[in-house]
Simulated assay, not measured.
Amino acid sequence: MGDATRTKRRRTDDADTPATPLVRSTEYWFDDGNIILQVESTQFRVAKSVLSRHSSVFRDMLMMPLPADEPTVENCPVVVLSGDTAQDWTLFLEAMYPKSLMEEVPRFELIAAILRLSKKYECPAFRQDCVRRLKTKFPTTLEEYDELEPWTCIKGNKNIYLPILRFAREIGLHSIIPLIYCHMLTLSRGRYMPKILNVDDASLGASDRFACLLGIANLQILQSTTTMAWLEVDLPSSALPAQNCLQPARCVAMVKETILEAASTHPPSLCVISEWNETWGVGMCRPCEKKAKDVFEAGREECWDKLPSMFGLPEWKELMSNDFE
């Protein structure tokens, strides 16, 4: 808060206990404000009308007459908000008092703060926009996933999947969790594997660690019978070589080369919802490449449908019905 003006909180303990210093927000202390919100040790002076416009909780509260002995600061009533953080309120007020239009791609910290407080204080417009952004980033259908451009609804990178996972559990947004797990395991190039395997890493809860470990095993098995079933060229039921293959020996050799390359990756590649890798078809004849790709695409749909169960979660429909909104 820099050189923010300081005042004193009224003592709530005995006279020998020093008062906790209060800090006025330099960003959200308006001279024409008519109510003071006290969050932790920070005070915000804002307008009742702005709070009432966005929050039904504040609208109802501010309609009630103030007690005669209500504490005031500069003739403004002081409302102490327990259980909130000053950081969240600073970001929340950033949305209520924008210096410009809200960022087209807001950072996750802003979305988390707004959603956390808009849920508590009943600010439906803010809440719905934040939920929409999270559900757009982590959809529940393969069609929506395939149409999604990376990081167009939330500003971020592969390092924020874990914070988003913890936040989804905190607010009860269950339907986005399977895809977060999948991103952590399949699309982050092993970035999260040390956290998943290290039981002493407290950044990942026990239930999430178990779900990820279960997912690793289940997805490896699932992909072998779905997306990557075309690799099983030695089985009688193999899709390859195709019936109209132009070069059976060469196509089988190319498939086995792909198997060896996949086996050498660490951690092992998981190809359950990722798109077809064009390099897999190099060296195959056109009929075999098409057959392999058809098997892969059909497998992606099956994998998507089964994705929640791979982590021990209910099916998509139940997860969506259990979302807080």
Results as ranks from 00 to 15, higher is better:
137 K>E: 15
188 S>F: 03
164 I>L: 06
283 G>T: 07
288 C>L: 07
230 W>I: 07
132 R>D: 12
223 Q>N: 12
288 C>T: 09
199 V>M: 11
219 L>Y: 04
52 S>W: 04
161 Y>Q: 11
31 D>C: 02
101 L>V: 02
219 L>T: 01
250 R>G: 00
195 K>P: 01
73 V>I: 15
47 A>S: 15
292 A>S: 08
220 Q>L: 14
7 T>E: 06
53 R>C: 05
174 H>P: 01
324 F>P: 04
16 D>E: 15
24 R>N: 02
287 P>V: 06
20 T>I: 11
37 L>Q: 04
228 M>K: 11
201 D>F: 08
100 S>T: 13
18 P>G: 05
306 K>S: 00
74 E>G: 04
231 L>V: 01
127 R>L: 11
238 S>K: 08
66 L>I: 07
240 L>V: 10
166 R>H: 12
227 T>W: 00
204 L>H: 09
223 Q>I: 07
34 N>W: 11
289 E>D: 13
238 S>D: 09
42 T>W: 00
290 K>W: 06
276 W>N: 02
11 R>H: 07
241 P>D: 12
77 P>W: 12
192 Y>L: 09
7 T>Q: 04
198 N>H: 12
222 L>P: 00
235 L>E: 12
172 G>R: 09
99 K>T: 08
319 L>F: 13
223 Q>P: 03
249 A>I: 03
76 C>Y: 06
39 V>H: 12
196 I>M: 07
126 F>V: 04
280 W>P: 00
152 T>I: 06
54 H>A: 14
68 A>N: 12
308 P>I: 02
113 A>M: 10
258 T>D: 06
254 M>S: 11
54 H>S: 09
251 C>D: 08
287 P>Q: 04
188 S>M: 08
266 H>G: 00
150 P>R: 07
292 A>H: 01
67 P>A: 07
119 K>E: 13
76 C>Q: 03
30 F>D: 13
181 Y>A: 01
14 D>K: 14
217 A>S: 10
69 D>G: 02
323 D>F: 13
39 V>P: 08
64 M>N: 06
109 E>F: 05
21 P>S: 01
293 K>Y: 00
106 P>G: 04
275 E>L: 11
148 L>A: 10
34 N>T: 08
33 G>N: 07
64 M>I: 14
181 Y>C: 01
214 L>N: 13
265 T>E: 06
264 S>M: 04
59 R>Y: 11
208 D>M: 01
187 L>S: 09
296 F>R: 03
230 W>K: 07
246 L>H: 12
173 L>E: 10
291 K>I: 04
240 L>E: 05
183 H>L: 03
309 S>V: 05
1 M>S: 12
223 Q>R: 10
173 L>S: 08
325 E>P: 13
155 K>P: 00
192 Y>Q: 05
39 V>T: 11
280 W>A: 00
162 L>R: 13
192 Y>C: 05
105 V>F: 03
40 E>M: 06
97 Y>H: 02
234 D>I: 02
145 Y>V: 01
209 R>G: 09
134 L>E: 10
177 I>D: 10
43 Q>E: 14
48 K>T: 13
251 C>V: 03
262 A>I: 08
131 V>E: 14
72 T>K: 15
